[in-house]
Design a protein around this nucleic acid. Structure first.
Lengths: 197, 197
DNA sequence: GCTTTTGCATTACGACTGTAATGTAACCGA
DNA sequence: TCGGTTACATTACAGTCGTAATGCAAAAGC
């Protein structure tokens, strides 16, 4: 094999450019030429690493998902061992909310993909896999807090579903600047207080 | 003036077709030709009633907003005079959630416009005007319930913000089929129970 | 009846799109 | 050293896009 090139690295380089374009101009501005120009490469190179545009989009969605997960595990790791459920969940959620410009950009991309997947069944399947396990995880934390006497007597599954819905909704309202960060955080903390003590 | 034609009627006819296309194939499939074909008219006619595509999109967004408001006032009207705050709000919210195919189509369009507006400041301004007054209305209802001794001692503004965030999040999860209708309604009722008695 | 305006159809244009084809240079294995 | 494969770059192509231009029929006002 000639020319040792890290395929995955090249693909993420391209997809990083894709996400910058999507965050700035929207997903409909994502064309092979725009992405290539943003990445500083030729369209031929983009074509070399992604045979079709759809393949590039799918890879981009996977990267977005992976980065979200990485962001969570990294933030949770910073909490140290055996954190309190409420702090754990609060950290998780605030980490995912678009509270600064970097995460706002990510959220714009995620929103664009959400709308993209809403009319593409195959792409939607890629999104669906993450949430159920997140709901399960949050429900488990609520259960643990309840067992320790540190949470209200609510149905864990329902409370978890509601809490993630709050997160998603706050994300939307933050992104569209309908809520100020303070408003969103107050609403989140109120929600957490209603579930935990 | 020759040929008496109701401009507004023609424009809504075209925009109805636009929304069908957007709900079925996404907003990036909305082109003058596709919309014209869906409406059964020529592109020339579309151009006659909308000088640019952006003008058509703005009108479509206004129609979506107006229909949402009309849907609310109509559902609230069905409740009769002086409804209980909790029932009033529950009716409002369930009316806006994508719980059947018709509202799912509307929600897909709304989601597409949300992503569209996220990268277009002028379009975003059009979206921003509705939510604050909705938050204010919900907060007033919570205050009224509190005065009547029928609600928990929560901050009305924060509770209202949280409740609308739940609505938005449930809408997203319902639309992407990550939550079943039952799950969403349970989460909504749990949220209402936490605010009201 | 004649003019003028409106309502709409048709066509053309330049820009952009995704994709395919082709070329070329670099490098690895033999 | 010599194929052969990989890594790109360039160009071409057919299709779609928004928009502008043009044309024409119908109807209202004079």
């Amino acid at each position: 094999m000639p020319k040792i090139v890290d395929h995955h690295e090249r693909r993420t380089l391209i997809v990083d450019a894709l996400m910058r374009v999507a965050a700035r101009d929207g997903l409909e501005a994502v064309s092979l030429r725009h992405v290539a120009a943003e990445a500083g490469v030729t369209t031929g190179m983009v074509q070399h690493y992604f045979r079709t545009k759809e393949e590039m989009m799918e890879f981009a969605m996977a990267v977005v998902r992976e980065r979200g997960e990485a962001r969570i595990t990294e933030a949770v790791g910073r909490l140290g061992p055996a954190p309190a459920p409420r702090e754990l969940i609060r950290t998780m959620i605030t980490e995912l909310l678009p509270l600064d410009e970097a995460r706002r950009a990510d959220a714009r991309v995620a929103l664009a993909f959400l709308a993209y997947a809403a009319v593409r069944p195959v792409a939607a399947a890629s999104l669906r896999q993450e949430t159920p396990q997140l709901v399960g995880f949050v429900a488990d934390q609520i259960r643990a807090a309840q067992a320790a006497g540190a949470a209200a007597d609510v149905d864990p599954a329902t409370a978890a579903a509601g809490l993630l819905a709050v997160m998603e909704g706050l994300g939307i309202y933050l992104l569209t600047e309908q809520y100020a960060p303070r408003t969103a955080l107050d609403a989140l903390d109120a929600q957490l207080s209603r579930i935990f003590g």
